[in-house]
Design a protein around this nucleic acid. Structure first.
Lengths: 342, 342
DNA sequence: CTGAAAGCGCTTACAG
DNA sequence: CTGAAAGCGCTTACAG
């Protein structure tokens, strides 16, 4: 069965009694095809189970019927779920998806973006997940023949979806302020400078704004850099406890950082919320079980939304509206790790 | 720069002063090419930064220079890491990787395996990660033109890599027995019957064998089915506590199941190891932080190993040895969740 | 060892 | 609205 010869456009032409070029046009929904012809072709194609050869179509100048997902890594909670949700949308749209993980490796990153024409030869479009890009790379992508959409990026000339990180961080911080805390630390990652991704920067800003709203200023000693991982959080919290000052509450830039912080607390004979109130940002599945208060952000939804944005562009290359940036809502989840200051 | 016209085989032929067919042969390392020609072609190709068009190459009957990873899901810890490790091997070998997530959806599963000739048109080979296959599907794959390799599968006619699940489960169980426990429960997933994946079945077997080694038999009441997720573990442990009997020790088929079990314990005012000793299997990054005793299994290594197996087959289609099954080692990690029976 | 020719299955102008 | 022709960039026999 898998060895049966595949039907070609020739077969469809023969069966429908039309030329292959009319078949080609009909199948792609191009104008200048009579309804009668359209119907005959559709019938013949269906009967033969015809699917155009991706290779031939691509070589002749048509589409590849495939897209690439470019992600900083495929292993963390956020990216794994975003990738799977996007892949589902692409598969349901009849598109194959090529996975490109940058693996947080600058060499891989530059290799990919230095050969956009190579990429454009293999896929029709790309979905970027929080990819840090230089101005030059943004322009090159925009000028390429590739359709582009992204998740979690800033100020880019294509469709984007994300959350309002400033707002989310402010919500988390205000939750702590509302509980009577005024001595707050933040454990958060830091961007290296590419202005296309400002996730961590925005979270720090939301924290700062929330404090300012209560006439408080940020204590530089209580701002500690932390990679968005469990181990990053553990180290950051240890740094706070051992070398700086222990505040009464902590905002962790993401849940995994918060988990690490809770582990560090335990290692020092402390715990949340007894000694420190702590709140994260993500709503990782472990948060529920660890009783972590956090700000939930939709993850599969962002991946699927971004994928749909790309599919739209692919379907209506010309008629599509101006690129826009969409924000999805977040919401506070109060659990045991945060409580009123005594 | 991304708009520069791509070099074609014609350009290489012109620059090297040879015909395109000699160039084609030289580039693919085929026999019957003089050393002089080989050198000229290599030089010209390098100078032009020539890379063969995947579409043209495929259409003419050559390779696609891409492979597919087929995985039950891309979101769980194990599969996310295996996918990324495999993708890295493929990328480093110059292969593009297509990601196909079955999303635990039987409809997607059968759609994919019903159209192997469609798949074979797009990729040269597939890496299967714990994919449940019927006899018919195994034969169809084996008879197809696709190169195949797998991770975590059983009794398949192609190269495979995995761990000895019976042994790993026995190690976990014997750890509990050695601590003086003799009243043991197991929380573990169950295969639906496809003999190509026996992970859960083998873990239950290892548990049973370990007990038998101490002249103990399995209490059917203490064998509870649990999907390999946090929530699955939570429910399974609740079932044990509420409707069955509370043993003194529990072997959870995977770490995520163990996390859920620990959460359920807490919800019932119990905890490990105070009331119950618990041991998992995986060595998930959270295990260290939650103090979970577990049996470590290599995850990125399995993905990379499987990918290399596939790359080997692709490079030496004929000369390669008989398909073999490789087992990677596991090891016990003792932490706080298990202790001597009082 | 090397090259001329045909063909893979499509799409794109260009005629009708 | 429809079709004949050329061509996309390779590889595969087949001659030399």
């Amino acid at each position: 069965m898998s060895e049966v010869q595949r039907a070609t456009i020739q077969d469809v032409a023969l069966l429908s009694g039309l030329s292959i070029c009319t078949v080609s046009r009909a199948l792609r929904g191009l104008p200048n095809v009579s309804e009668a012809a359209q119907a005959k072709v559709a019938g013949a194609a269906a009967k033969l189970g015809y699917v155009a050869s991706a290779a031939a179509s691509r070589l002749a100048g048509g589409s590849t019927r495939s897209v690439a997902i470019i992600t900083p890594t495929a292993t963390t909670w956020f990216f794994a779920h975003a990738v799977e949700a996007a892949e589902q949308v692409f598969a349901d749209s009849g598109l194959d998806t090529m996975l490109i993980s940058l693996r947080n490796d600058p060499a891989v990153h530059s290799r990919i973006f230095a050969d956009l024409s190579g990429l454009a030869q293999k896929v029709d479009g790309v979905l970027l997940l929080n990819v840090e890009l230089t101005e030059g790379q943004i322009h090159a992508l925009d000028a390429s023949s590739l359709a582009v959409a992204s998740v979690g990026m800033h100020d880019v000339p294509w469709d984007n979806v994300g959350i309002d990180n400033v707002q989310a961080a402010r919500t988390a911080t205000e939750h702590l302020l509302d509980l009577g805390h005024w001595d707050l630390a933040i454990l958060c990652d830091r961007e290296k400078g590419a202005r296309s991704v400002l996730t961590a920067t925005d979270r720090l800003r939301g924290f700062t704004e929330a404090l300012a709203g209560h006439d408080l200023t940020v204590d530089a000693d209580l701002v500690v850099g932390a990679p968005s991982t469990i181990d990053g959080g553990r180290r950051a919290m240890s740094e706070l406890i051992e070398n700086r000052r222990v505040p009464t509450a902590v905002f962790a830039g993401c849940d995994e950082t918060a988990f690490g912080a809770m582990a560090a607390l335990r290692e020092h004979g402390l715990s949340a919320p007894r000694n420190i109130s702590i709140v994260g940002l993500d709503e990782h599945p472990m948060s529920h079980f660890l009783g972590l208060s956090t700000v939930q952000q939709p993850v599969a939804d962002q991946g699927a939304f971004g994928a749909n944005l790309l599919v739209e562009r692919l379907h209506n290359p010309e008629t599509a509206p101006e690129p826009a940036s969409h924000l999805l809502p977040t919401s506070l989840m109060v659990r045991d790790s945060s409580r009123r200051r005594r």
